[in-house]
Nucleic acid binder design. Structure first.
Lengths: 145, 145
DNA sequence: TATTGTTATACTCTATAACTATA
DNA sequence: TATAGTTATAGAGTATAACAATA
């Protein structure tokens, strides 16, 4: 592999290794763990504050119906609360509960722990630095594209 | 965010932004495109040569039944061929067809094109370099963990 | 009319269980 | 018995279509 910036190759490689890593993380999931979409939605409600189904769906770029299913699961665990919007009867506002905060703050996620363990076993400090540099770039492109 | 190596944070952030990017790539898929599991399996058969269902399932770390479904789809498109192993009647050997080579070599993948376009629009040359440095690291951890 | 949300249905990717054929 | 593969079934995560309630 050359050191040229082969953007096409970066894109092709990433789509394959993302899917491999998603599988690994799914397999590392333990019974009782939140799923990735659930964590992602919960973290967003925590970060952005109380929010509607439609707004959350847009932010995560999935359909409102799909987001509804994820939010039902979070509500069933008591991690978020639904409340009516007094100003607009159509709206339902989701907010994070104390239990939701507790889950987010705790390290109750076997997937993340497995990834962390693999990173520490596999990489040198310098390589971890390279990886850390790439994370905000991936986050940026995920939010923008 | 500090510049400390916070491995836990890298792992947590990656699992969320992987799932966002997987969604974007799924949405970019066009009718007729291969799915990511299909591309991944086809690329592996191409790279590793003729291979059995079980061996491919182990390499991709999914069940033989799941791999079977993916391979059926590839065979239905004529991208791989099945042949009996003369030395072991239980085995079915999959090999890539000329059409499969053509698909792999061509740039017939709207997902990869979209990712590439987003990279070029979003990143500086230096940032693309950082991203390129991270790709082999992610591939390594995906293969090892 | 347009927007918010829900219910119903279907597809993809994955899993486990149970089976057949072969070694 | 053990291994290779297939069929049947189920669950998670997503989608679209159709609907009700509200603005």
């Amino acid at each position: 592999m050359s050191t040229d910036l082969n953007v096409e190759e970066i894109a092709s490689s990433l789509q394959i290794c993302f899917s491999l890593l998603m599988r690994r993380m799914r397999q590392a999931q333990e019974s009782g763990d939140l799923t990735v979409p659930q964590i992602s939605a919960l973290a967003r409600i925590d970060r952005d504050g109380p929010n509607t189904v439609t707004a959350l769906a847009k932010a995560e770029q999935i359909s409102p119906q799909s987001m509804g299913a994820t939010l039902n699961a979070l509500e069933a665990r008591g991690l978020i609360q639904r409340s009516a919007d007094p100003a607009d009867g159509r709206r339902v506002v989701l907010s994070i509960s104390p239990a939701g905060h507790h889950v987010l703050r705790g390290r109750q996620n076997a997937r993340a722990r497995q990834l962390e363990k693999a990173f520490l076993a596999e990489f040198t400090t310098s390589e971890l630095g390279q990886l850390m540099a790439a994370v905000p770039l991936l986050e940026r492109v995920a939010a923008e594209m």
